[in-house]
C-alpha cells in the first residue's frame, strides 16, 4: 500500500498553512519532515492521518480517498503519536498502553493480547514503568509510554501482510540522548519489518542518518523532497532556516553554531 497526498491546499482561519503539498510514503520507508516552526509539519501529519480535511486535494490510502475510509479502519492501518494532553484520572501506564489495543484487533487476535503487549513493553523498555501511575511520570517517560501505545496499535501476527503506517510528531521530544537513539533505532527496525513511517524531527543530523527520504517545508511549501544526501544541502538548509548551516563533507555532519 502507498499513502499519498495530492496537491494539498489548506488554510485555517484565513491563514494558508499548506500550499500545494504532494507527498508519497511507501511501506517500509522512513520519510522525515523538516522545517522551521510554523512551516506546517504537524499539519501534514494531521492531514495524512485524516484528522483535518484540506480545502483542496486529498489524502489517498492506495487509490482510496481517506474520507471514504471509516475511522476504525484508519486506526487499524495507521497509528499516530503526537503531543499528549494532560490526563486527569490516575490511569496506570499499562492501562494507557492498552488503549492501543483496538476493538477490531481484539476481535481478530484476542488470544495474542498478552504476547502483544509484553512484546511492545519489552521493545520500548518500559518494564519498570508498567505499574506506575501515568500522571506521575516525567515528560520523557510519558513519551516512551505513548510510543508503546502507538506500537501496540500496529501489532500484527508475524505472518500478517496488512499494511501499517506510523506517524510520529517529534517522537524524540523530551528524551535523553540514549532514549533518543534507542527510539530511532526501534523506528528503523519497524521500517525494516515493513511499517511505513512519517516523522517530524528537528535534529538535522538524526534526520540525515535515519531517513530514506526527507521533505523540507518552508511556510507551507515543499522546498526540498528526496533522498537526504541529495536534498540536505548547505544552500537549501541555510535559506530555509535563515541561519548559516555547514555540512562537513568527510564526516557528513551538519553544524549550525
Amino acid at each position: 500500500m502507498t499513502i499519498c497526498t495530492k496537491e494539498i491546499f489548506l488554510s485555517i482561519n484565513g491563514v494558508e498553512i499548506l500550499k500545494n503539498v504532494s507527498l508519497e510514503i511507501n511501506e517500509g520507508e522512513i520519510l522525515t519532515i523538516l522545517g522551521p516552526n510554523g512551516a506546517g509539519k504537524s499539519t501534514i501529519v494531521n492531514v495524512l492521518s485524516g484528522d483535518i480535511t484540506p480545502q483542496n486535494g486529498h489524502t489517498y490510502y492506495d487509490e482510496r480517498p481517506i474520507d471514504s475510509i471509516s475511522i476504525q479502519e484508519r486506526a487499524f492501518t495507521r497509528s499516530v503519536m503526537s503531543q499528549i494532553q494532560p490526563i486527569v484520572f490516575d490511569f496506570s501506564v499499562k492501562a494507557i498502553i492498552q488503549m492501543g489495543w483496538l476493538d477490531r484487533g481484539y476481535a481478530a487476535y484476542s488470544n495474542d493480547y498478552e504476547d502483544a503487549i509484553n512484546k511492545v513493553i519489552r521493545e520500548c523498555e518500559v518494564q519498570d514503568l508498567v505499574d506506575r501511575n501515568f500522571t506521575h511520570l516525567s515528560g520523557g517517560e510519558q513519551r516512551r509510554v505513548c510510543f508503546a501505545r502507538a506500537l501496540l496499535q500496529l501489532w500484527r501476527p508475524s505472518n500478517s501482510k496488512e499494511p501499517r503506517y506510523l506517524f510520529l510528531d517529534e517522537p524524540t521530544a523530551n528524551l535523553d540522548l540514549a532514549h533518543e537513539i534507542k527510539i530511532l533505532n526501534l523506528i528503523k527496525s519497524k521500517a525494516e519489518e515493513g511499517v511505513g513511517i512519517v516523522m517530524v524531527l528537528h535534529d538535522l543530523n538524526l534526520a540525515n542518518r535515519f531517513s530514506h527520504r526527507v521533505v523540507i517545508l518552508k511556510k507551507g511549501e515543499v522546498v526540498g523532497y528526496g533522498k537526504p544526501e541529495v536534498v540536505l544541502s548547505e544552500e537549501l538548509l541555510s535559506s530555509t532556516y535563515g541561519l548559516p548551516i555547514n555540512i562537513d563533507i568527510t564526516s557528513n555532519i551538519i553544524t549550525y553554531y
Partner: peptide
Amino acid sequence: ARQLDIIQLGEPEAYRLGVN
C-alpha cells in the same frame, strides 16, 4: 466504557484510535 477510557487521551487522540 472503553471509549470513555480512550477519550482521556484527548479528543484528537481518541479520534485517531477510531472512537467516533
